[in-house]
């Protein structure tokens, strides 16, 4: 789901509000506590969505598939659907605390196992793409913000807006269509690649190129636009005049004063946009059949595998919440105004 482009002042206002009072310990505990509460809510939401809401869980899962009454009865038993809703919830939470996310209906293995299998390809893709997007976005944003109105600014902002307006998966498909033969179209590695580390790594990198380009293309724009706004906002500050008066060169003023201050809200925004990146990852993995959590979600979706969907929902949402807690903590480290007690 794409994010909304937010205007400058508001974007900066959305950064975690500085805490007044209380020491570092109290702040850290508050944020972690908040994160835990959010995660608890995610768990409850997961239950509500995938057990309470669908009405007849078994009917949904076996939709379009022949199922004998015996199978249905067995499934009902397996998923504890004969118990009351409250009892089911307790079992669900109990299992969760033991790391048991239930069993995937289609794959017939524990959900947790499937998720573990698919976790690191997603981490790899998202990690690489985020690093590149952030670097690219921040650099472009700084340059276009400092020279506002220049040709560079107008062109790069235009490109960013255009890329932001196109759906991720479509870009992926275009890349596939445009580079037929140059890059692999699916999967992590070719099955016939020699098993040594080096060949495997090269092959994986080869497979990684297109999905990464796709994900970067849609993600970097947001960072660029926010960094640009943030820098433009900082440039109106009085302390920059003081810096100039001291005799600093233009680029020194930018490097030492404007950019570091403008980076502060942008850095945390990077973490806050993780949800958006994950959304992009889901569609990108689908298009390129990259065997990560995104593709897993899609597969689960296709066949109405509710336990698996529930599992991926909890894991993905939990990851984003975790990242947000990190963002809050990081902001406190970076901005001395927030550190003040």
């Amino acid at each position: 789901m794409s994010d909304i482009l937010i205007p400058t002042e508001e974007a900066l206002a959305e950064v975690p509000p500085p805490t007044r009072g209380g020491g570092t310990v109290r702040y850290v505990l508050t944020k972690i506590g908040g994160g835990l509460i959010s995660f608890a809510l995610v768990i409850v939401l997961g239950f509500l969505l995938f057990r309470a809401l669908p009405g007849n869980v078994i009917a949904t899962m076996t939709r379009g598939r022949p199922a004998t009454p015996e199978m249905i009865a067995q499934l009902e038993d397996e998923y504890g659907l004969n118990d009351s809703l409250w009892q089911q919830f307790l079992t669900y939470v109990g299992n969760l605390l033991h790391g048991d996310l239930g069993n995937s209906y289609i794959f017939r293995v524990p959900v947790l196992q499937k998720i573990e299998e698919r976790l690191w390809p997603t981490v790899l893709l998202v990690g690489v793409a985020t690093l590149i997007s952030v670097a690219l976005g921040l650099w472009l944003g700084t340059r276009s913000g400092w020279r506002r109105g220049s040709r560079f600014d107008r062109v790069s902002t235009g490109v960013a807006l255009t890329l932001w307006s196109t759906p991720t998966f479509w870009l992926g498909m275009l890349l596939l269509a445009g580079t037929t033969g140059l890059f692999p179209t699916a999967g992590l590695v070719y099955s016939d690649t020699p098993p040594d580390f080096f060949s495997q790594a090269v092959d994986m990198a080869h497979h990684l190129v297109l999905p990464t380009i796709t994900l970067v293309a849609v993600t970097y724009a947001q960072y660029q636009l926010v960094m640009r706004s943030s820098l433009i906002e900082e440039m109106g500050a009085d302390y920059l005049t003081t810096a100039r008066a001291k005799g600093l060169r233009d680029d020194q003023v930018r490097r030492k004063h404007a950019v570091p201050n403008a980076l502060l809200p942008t850095v945390t925004l990077v973490f806050l946009h993780l949800g958006f990146v994950i959304a992009g990852a889901i569609t990108t993995e689908t298009v390129f059949s990259w065997p990560g959590l995104g593709l897993l979600t899609y597969d689960a979706l296709r066949v109405h595998d509710l336990p698996l969907l529930q599992g991926t929902f909890v894991v993905l949402a939990g990851a984003v919440i975790f990242m947000n807690v990190i963002a809050d903590l990081l902001y406190r480290v970076l901005d001395p105004r927030v550190r003040a007690s």
Partner: peptide
Amino acid sequence: LRAVRWTSAAIVFQGAMHALNPV
């Protein structure tokens, strides 16, 4: 000009609140 700034003449700005880098 840059060499002259601050060494020959310096300015004490108003509203010291915003004239100092807050971080």
